[in-house]
């Protein structure tokens, strides 16, 4: 309990990040490491799928906040999907829903990176 796993996959030029468990001050380093790994590979289009994320503390929110400027300066974005009610509520409390695009499904988030004319 309280541990975190983070898997990543690629869908074209979009990197999908799957945190599962808790992100707090103890586990945040693993989450940061996986995000940084993508950025080091010059992959600046990220979708964080929070379907298995049960809880996020300010350490995790800080990790998202600390990278978004670099990502956007490189023409990318970090978008979120499948936030449960608890996690979405925390985002809203801090105003993070104004900083990040949040989608209901992973497919919507992936498609949001595609040019409008591209049906895929």
């Amino acid at each position: 309990m309280g541990e975190l796993t983070v898997e990543t996959r690629e869908s074209g030029d979009v990197t999908l990040v799957y945190p599962a468990g808790f992100i707090n001050a103890h586990t945040v380093r693993l989450f940061e490491t996986e995000i940084q790994r993508a950025l080091e590979q010059k992959r600046f289009k990220l979708v964080v799928n929070c379907a298995s994320l049960s809880y996020i503390a300010s350490a995790g929110l800080g990790a998202l906040m600390g990278v978004i400027e670099e990502i956007r300066q490189n023409g990318g974005d970090l978008r979120l999907t499948n936030l449960n009610e608890t996690v979405l509520n925390i985002f809203e409390i801090l105003g993070f829903h104004h900083l990040y695009l949040i989608f209901s499904t992973e497919m919507e988030a992936i498609r949001s990176f595609r040019p409008a004319a591209d049906p895929q």
């Binding site: 300010s58 350490a59 800080g62 906040m65 978004i68 400027e69 801090l94 105003g95 993070f96």
Partner: peptide, 24 residues
């Protein structure tokens, strides 16, 4: 006080905890 736009520009990763506590 928390200024998200400024924190983003400064690439800050901290400074949110007390604000979150006060909101809750």
């Amino acid at each position: 006080s928390v200024d998200l736009d400024r924190y983003v520009k400064q690439r800050r990763t901290g400074g949110l905890g007390v604000h979150l506590m006060e909101k809750i």
